[in-house]
Amino acid sequence: MQLVSKVIGDVLVVRVNEPRIDAAAAVEFKDAMRAATHDAAGRVVLDLSQVAMIDSSGLGAIVTVMKTLGDDRPLELAALTVNVAAVFRLTRMESVMKIHDCVDDAMDAVRSDA
């Protein structure tokens, strides 16, 4: 599981450099996210621009990561591809997760909240 992290201000941006977060990858994704967010202090933005497919196991893994990070380190999503966005829409998880069109939008949201 290839995750690329970078810190921008007080935000940790994690890009998933994988085409899928599916049943075969869900456990690995959770472990890799735990390691990548270990030192995160504030918001975490998950850049999903490279992910073309997510299934219910992948969705469950993202919810688990979100819960583990808790309220102090809110997990936000950015740059959903068309079929990934459909899964969040169908399961109505888009109504409880902050989803940005792109990483730049996520950064703008941070600035405007400040």
Binding site: D55, V63, K67
Partner: peptide, 25 residues
């Protein structure tokens, strides 16, 4: 059917989405 997910982070479901998606699609 899937219940409307609540705003309470800890009560969010981590599973049960699979068959719901099959039912929808």
């Amino acid at each position: 059917p899937l219940s409307q997910p609540s705003d309470d982070l800890l009560s969010l479901p981590e599973g049960g989405f699979g068959w719901f998606l099959v039912g929808q699609l």
